[in-house]
Design a protein around this nucleic acid. Sequence first.
DNA 1: TTTTTACTTGTCACATTCAGTCAAATGTAA
DNA 2: TTACATTTGACTGAATGTGACAAGTAAAAA
Lengths: 95, 95
Amino acid sequence: MIIGKKLRELREQKGLLLRQVAASLEVDTAYISKMERGEKNIKREFILKLAELYQTDKNQLITIWLADQVYDILKDETLAESALNIVKEHIQKRK
Amino acid sequence: MIIGKKLRELREQKGLLLRQVAASLEVDTAYISKMERGEKNIKREFILKLAELYQTDKNQLITIWLADQVYDILKDETLAESALNIVKEHIQKRK
DNA sequence: TTTTTACTTGTCACATTCAGTCAAATGTAA
DNA sequence: TTACATTTGACTGAATGTGACAAGTAAAAA
């Protein structure tokens, strides 16, 4: 959904190549490509490293990353909104 | 979180034993026990069958089931609320 | 045109996770 | 005790995920 797009934006803003990011995370170039295009899940660990590399706010990136995972569950669901409301209540009660 | 609790409530309201529900879904009794206590994920298919068995609203049950999955992702996250907001926007835009 | 550079795609080996079962353990009520 | 309901732990085969590698586009550069 959005985390991949965001990561690509950030990378391009910094003028980095996939190859360079891959080297920095010590993974294959293809792997980064797949992350950015949403073909592979991204581990929290990678998000944090990328936030550093791109000098961007970790929390903002993690938030988008979380939203992405939630969206994956709900994207084709008619009942998504009611589900979100239930979750919201529980989350707020939690505090 | 809640789907298991809900299922147990429904079963008890109907006065059914784990064994009977298990027979109806054609799985092991232990498996139903684990579902109700949140030790195992529940497949959509099972939720639908259980809604029938318990003569309850399918949509309501599916909604809780979805909420449960979302909550699993967010339960330990400080950033849960902001993530939810992002998802909400995207879901609403989708329509 | 050929070459080069960035990126994408398919396939594969390996690892990890998960579904669901079984048997044993625990609880509980008669 | 006996009998029945539920829980627990250990287990296996299947499904899924990770990440690499090599080959394939695509577009600009030479």
